[in-house]
Structures are given as C-alpha cells and as structure tokens.
Amino acid sequence: MKCWGGGKVKHTLAVLVENRPGVLSHVAGLFSRRGYNIESLAVGETDDSSVSRITLVVEGDAKIIEQVSKQLNKQVEVIKVNDITEEETVDRQLLLLKVNADIAVRQEIMQIVEIFRCRIVDIGRRSLIVEATGDDAKIQAIIKSLQPFGIMELVRTGRVSIVRGQK
C-alpha cells in the first residue's frame, strides 16, 4: 500500500503575507476548516511595512505539512511559504511570568533568574514578574524551575524563527 513516510514532526513555517486587515484571520481560518492544528503562531511586520511575517509551528506528518503549505500558497494574500524546519535557525519566544515571591523565597527566585539569564521587570509586595527570552527548551526549563513557588500568571508569545547565515 502506498503511504507517506514519517511520523508526526513539528514544522516551522515562515509565511510572508500582505500586511492587510483580515489576513491573519484568513490564515487561521484555513487551518481550522482544513482540520490542521496550530501549535504556535507569531505575526509582525517585516522590514517592508507592507509585508508581515507569520511564523507558524504545526505538528503533522509529511502529507499534512505538504497540504498546509500548498493550501497556504493558494491564498491570494500569501506571498511566500518557507518550511524552515530543516534549516539552521535561531528560535525565540518571549515569556512573562508572575510568580509568588514572599520575602523568604525572593532571594532563591532571583538566583534562578540569574542562572537562566532572564530579568526581573517588576517587583510587587508578594510577587515578581520575570521576563525571559529563549528557545522552547529554555522557556520550558524556566517555567519548571519557578513552578514550585506558585505561578500566578503566565503569558508567552509564539515562536519566531530566522534562518542563520547567508540567506
């Protein structure tokens, strides 16, 4: 029987789109109606203010990813789709995390923050806000380390990626 090889892999797609109202909803709508799942999504203007770049992380086998790319390519407002999963990339996410920080544990938290080279951006009477950037692994590690103190609020962006070197 013919089938597509490979199991589910997380793919990073860099999608250049026209910077126009409604574009993001078109792209997101495409995913929902075709039954694909978005793991993470980040969008922002590029050096050309009329072009936005959407960085999408999608999980699926080779067949799904190929369909996703082709369907994205069909959208009038999509300029280019690049699957950069196999490329050497720099990946970053931003994390803001409000953690319980009574006087007794404050020092300990600050040490952790130091080790991960992240920053404290706000100090409250009983809490601290930690800001961190990094790849997925680092962000996960920070969250895990701060969990025992009690996370009050957590917000993180989708992943943004850029290919290293000449390109």
């Binding site: 013919k2 597509w4 190929e66 069909k74």
Partner: peptide
C-alpha cells in the same frame, strides 16, 4: 492546482 495533488489520493 498543486494543492490537489496528493490531497485525497497519493500521486505516484
């Protein structure tokens, strides 16, 4: 339309 190829049936 490239998106039709291997959408439903895998094309050799």
């Amino acid at each position: 339309d490239p998106a039709e190829l291997s959408k439903n049936v895998v094309a050799d």
